[in-house]
């Protein structure tokens, strides 16, 4: 089965084509176009306009790169949510148009679950992981339990990427700020005390953000602040992930989301996994960030487990929670 997936939850519009090869995901193509605001954060309408402008070309490019014909596509999948309404609607509209014109079934999928499934689908031996999903908007620790992907811990205020971006904006870095903060942090030497806020398996970043901004106002070196922010937030993320692993008694950990491309975060989680004899997995960078291939792959899993959707019911859901999805395809 060949499935085309359209991702459009936030700043990225992506089209991926995947093939189901005896239960594993073969990515045939995965094209992404990222909206980068000139100033400030993501404006939902501007991002949606960006997506509308590029989606048609992306569809053609992605299908041609996959070396398939539109007629060979068996299923159209799209990101149903969670995300920004205008962006979701743009991606869903493209999916509906494609589904109707090609006369192929359509299926809307949960973006957060897709981040987990692409790891299971593309990485050998990644079977039942605890996912640390870290992106701009989302910070969740997710694992399979009692028929669903349950959220064992999550941010109580802002996502980790959002925390880094907000700090980056205050000090004049461009969006997305994570990679630049990572570079600055690698030159930091002095640890500046920052709030370390964990409640059970949940986590909070807004106090740390304020404290970091205060250090900047007091003229502490930017390198040291970035270093301290990374060390503190990533240690807390690693800790909640470990707590979820202990709680669920799972011995696999998977990273997902844009912040997973940060070397330091990977190192910390990998060290934690090693110390507790667990296996560590991280998909390639293009499958960690928001992308169409993961949407396509989750579409395949859901379709194969018998889930069907009609075009007239292919609504988007801005507040589509991870634990709302009945997971009938997982043993």
């Amino acid at each position: 089965m060949i499935c085309l997936g359209i991702e459009g939850t936030a700043h990225s519009i992506g089209v991926g084509v995947v093939e189901n090869v005896s239960g594993k995901c073969k990515v045939l193509s995965n094209m992404i176009k990222i909206y980068r605001p000139k100033k400030g954060g993501i404006h939902p309408r501007e991002a949606a306009n960006h997506h509308a402008l590029y989606i048609a070309d992306l569809l053609k490019e992605s299908v041609s790169k996959a070396q398939v014909d539109f007629s060979e596509v068996d299923l159209i999948s799209f990101s149903k949510g969670p995300g920004l309404g205008p962006c979701l609607r743009t991606a869903a509209t493209a999916a509906r148009a494609l589904s109707l014109s090609l006369n192929r079934p359509i299926i809307g999928v949960n973006h957060c679950v897709a981040h987990l499934e692409i790891g299971r689908g593309t990485l050998d031996d990644c079977k039942d992981p605890v996912l640390l999903y870290t992106s701009g908007a989302n910070t969740q620790v997710i694992a399979f339990a009692e028929g669903r992907y349950r959220v064992f811990g999550e941010t109580l205020d802002i996502g980790i990427g959002n925390c880094l971006d907000k700090f980056g904006r205050t000090v004049g870095l461009d969006f997305p700020c994570g990679p630049q903060i990572e570079k600055l942090a690698s030159k930091g030497k002095k640890y500046l005390e920052l709030p370390y806020s964990i409640k059970g398996m949940d986590i909070a970043f807004s106090g740390l953000l304020t404290a970091a901004e205060q250090y900047y106002k007091k003229n502490e070196s930017l390198e040291d602040i970035c270093y301290s922010m990374q060390e503190t937030t990533f240690a807390a993320l690693t800790e909640v992930t470990e707590r979820a692993m202990a709680h669920t008694e799972k011995d696999e950990v998977l990273l997902g989301g844009g912040v997973a491309s940060n070397r330091r975060l990977c190192d910390m989680v990998q060290t934690m996994a090693h110390d507790r004899d667990a296996r560590f997995f991280v998909p390639s960078k293009d499958l960690c960030i928001d992308n169409g291939a993961m949407i396509a792959w989750l579409g395949v899993l859901m379709y194969n487990s018998g889930i069907r959707m009609k075009v007239e019911n292919s609504f988007i859901d801005q507040r589509f929670r991870t634990d709302m999805v009945d997971v009938s395809w997982h043993d």
Binding site: Y191, Y196, E231, A235, E239, D267, M268, T271, D275
Partner: peptide, 13 residues
């Protein structure tokens, strides 16, 4: 002690 976090944070926690 957790080897994934720096000593300063580890000792404090």
């Amino acid at each position: 002690p957790k080897s994934y976090r720096i000593k300063h944070i580890d000792d404090r926690l």
